[in-house]
Simulated assay, not measured.
Amino acid sequence: MEEQFILRVPPAVAERIERLLNENASSSEDKSLDLSFPEDGRSGTFSIGDEHFPASLLDLPCVVESYKTYDDSCLIKTADIGQMIMVREPGDAAPDVIEYRHGLTPPMRDARKRRFRREPDLNPELVSRVEKDLLKIMAGGTADNVDILVLSEQEEAGEENSRGTNKKAAAPPVAKADAPQTVTNAGEADRSDSDESDDSV
C-alpha cells in the first residue's frame, strides 16, 4: 500500500499546479513546490514558486479509498486516505478543529452528525473497571465484586425439574369434524360442470 493524502488548494493555486505538472518545469514561472510542517504537525506552509500559503492537516470524517488502473478496466486499491492538507489564502482564518466535518463531496456535508451513529455515552470508570476485570480473567484470576454460586449436579437436576413443572403441557390438537356429505334429491337431474356458475369471479 502507498502513503497518500489529499491536497485541497484554492482555485488559483490549483491552476498553477496543473500548469506546472503539464508543462516543462524549466519554462514555467512556478518552478518549485514545497510543503513543510513544524513540530506540531497540524499547521504548516505550502510554497509554490515565491509565494507561501498557510496549510492545515485535517482528519477526514471517514476513510476514503483510492484506486489506480493500468488498462482502464481493472481498478487496484492503492491506499486508505484518512487525512487532508487544506491550503488557505493568506488572509483566511485557520480552522480551530482537527477534523474536517464535511468530507470531500457535497453528499458528505456534516456527515458525522447526519450519517454516523452517535458514540455511546460510557462512564470512563466503568470502562476501566471492565478492562481490569478482563485482564484478570485472561491471566487466570477472577473478576472483582462477583458472586460465585457453585451448584452440585443434584441441585442442577432439581432446578431443571422445577422449571419443567412450571411449563404448561401443550393441549392436544383438536380433531376436525368430518364435513357433512351432500345428498342430492332423487327427483333432480344431475347438473353438469358447464351448468354451474363460477362464483369465484
Rank of each mutant, 00 (worst) to 15 (best):
R129K: 08
M1V: 10
L135I: 11
E15G: 08
E188T: 13
N22R: 12
D50L: 13
T184G: 12
S197N: 10
P180E: 15
V87W: 00
F37A: 02
P95A: 10
E196T: 07
I81Y: 00
S200P: 00
S47W: 00
P10Q: 10
E51D: 15
L60C: 00
L60N: 00
L20C: 05
S73R: 07
A175F: 09
I137F: 11
S128F: 01
R88W: 04
I85A: 01
R115W: 11
K167Q: 09
G49I: 09
K132T: 13
R114K: 15
D40K: 09
I137D: 07
S28T: 09
L21I: 09
V174M: 10
G140H: 11
T69R: 01
E18T: 03
R191S: 04
R163Q: 10
E156P: 01
E2H: 06
E156G: 06
K77F: 03
V146R: 01
D96A: 11
T78P: 01
R163N: 07
E160Q: 14
A171D: 05
F53T: 10
K167F: 00
V64C: 02
G91R: 00
R112D: 08
E125D: 15
I81K: 02
S43W: 03
L58N: 05
L60Y: 03
L33F: 13
A94L: 13
S32I: 07
A170T: 08
R118M: 11
D193F: 15
K136Y: 08
E119K: 11
G82T: 12
E65D: 03
R19I: 04
G141Q: 12
R114E: 14
S26D: 04
D133E: 12
C62N: 00
D34N: 10
L151N: 05
S26W: 13
S162G: 07
L134F: 06
S162I: 07
F37Q: 02
R191I: 14
S27C: 06
T69H: 00
E23H: 09
P90E: 06
S128C: 05
E99G: 03
S73C: 06
A25Q: 08
G103M: 04
E29P: 04
I48G: 07
K168Y: 02
P61V: 02
R191K: 15
K68H: 05
V97P: 01
K68D: 03
A170K: 08
E65N: 00
S200N: 09
M84S: 04
E89H: 02
I137S: 11
T165Y: 02
I6D: 01
A14N: 05
K167V: 07
D96N: 10
A139Y: 07
A189T: 15
R19H: 12
P11W: 05
E15D: 13
E155G: 01
T45W: 05
I148D: 10
